[in-house]
Amino acid sequence: MSIEATLAEKGITLPAAPAPAANYVPFVQTGNLVFVSGQISQDEGGLIKGRLGDGMSVEDGAAAARRCGLSLIAQLKAAVGDLDRVRHVVKLTGFVNSTPDFTDQPKVINGCSDLMVEVFGEAGRHARAAVSAPALPLGVAVEIEAIFEVA
Score class of each variant (00 low, 15 high):
130 A>P: 02
133 A>C: 08
112 C>L: 13
107 K>C: 04
115 L>K: 05
97 N>Y: 05
121 G>W: 05
136 L>V: 11
112 C>S: 14
132 S>P: 06
95 F>S: 01
96 V>H: 00
109 I>T: 09
112 C>R: 03
105 Q>E: 10
112 C>W: 05
106 P>V: 05
129 A>I: 07
120 F>T: 04
108 V>I: 14
118 E>G: 07
102 F>K: 01
124 G>A: 12
140 V>W: 04
109 I>E: 00
130 A>S: 12
125 R>N: 13
114 D>A: 15
134 P>M: 06
129 A>R: 11
110 N>M: 06
111 G>M: 08
102 F>H: 03
128 R>M: 12
132 S>Q: 15
101 D>E: 14
95 F>Y: 06
97 N>D: 01
124 G>Y: 11
125 R>K: 15
99 T>F: 09
139 G>V: 09
99 T>N: 05
133 A>P: 04
121 G>Q: 07
125 R>P: 02
121 G>S: 08
116 M>Y: 06
106 P>F: 01
116 M>P: 02
98 S>A: 10
101 D>Y: 05
123 A>R: 13
99 T>G: 06
129 A>K: 08
124 G>M: 10
130 A>I: 06
116 M>L: 14
98 S>M: 07
108 V>H: 05
102 F>L: 08
107 K>N: 10
115 L>Y: 04
138 L>N: 07
130 A>T: 03
131 V>S: 12
111 G>N: 09
114 D>Q: 13
112 C>K: 01
95 F>N: 04
111 G>F: 05
96 V>D: 00
104 D>H: 04
99 T>M: 05
120 F>M: 08
109 I>G: 00
129 A>P: 00
133 A>L: 06
139 G>D: 06
99 T>I: 04
105 Q>G: 00
138 L>D: 13
139 G>F: 13
108 V>D: 09
114 D>H: 10
120 F>Q: 06
111 G>L: 10
104 D>P: 02
106 P>W: 00
127 A>C: 03
119 V>M: 05
114 D>C: 04
138 L>W: 10
122 E>H: 12
102 F>Y: 15
118 E>M: 09
140 V>M: 08
104 D>C: 02
95 F>D: 00
127 A>R: 15
113 S>Q: 10
123 A>V: 07
117 V>L: 07
133 A>F: 12
110 N>G: 11
129 A>M: 13
95 F>I: 01
121 G>R: 10
137 P>F: 06
135 A>E: 15
105 Q>H: 12
140 V>E: 11
99 T>Q: 01
108 V>Q: 01
118 E>W: 03
125 R>Y: 12
99 T>E: 03
104 D>T: 00
127 A>P: 04
119 V>C: 08
133 A>S: 11
140 V>F: 10
133 A>Q: 15
115 L>Q: 09
122 E>I: 09
136 L>A: 09
138 L>S: 14
102 F>E: 03
127 A>G: 08
99 T>D: 08
102 F>M: 03
105 Q>Y: 00
126 H>M: 15
117 V>T: 14
105 Q>P: 04
127 A>V: 12
138 L>F: 13
99 T>C: 02
126 H>D: 06
116 M>Q: 08
105 Q>S: 01
109 I>C: 09
99 T>V: 10
135 A>M: 14
119 V>Q: 02
101 D>F: 09
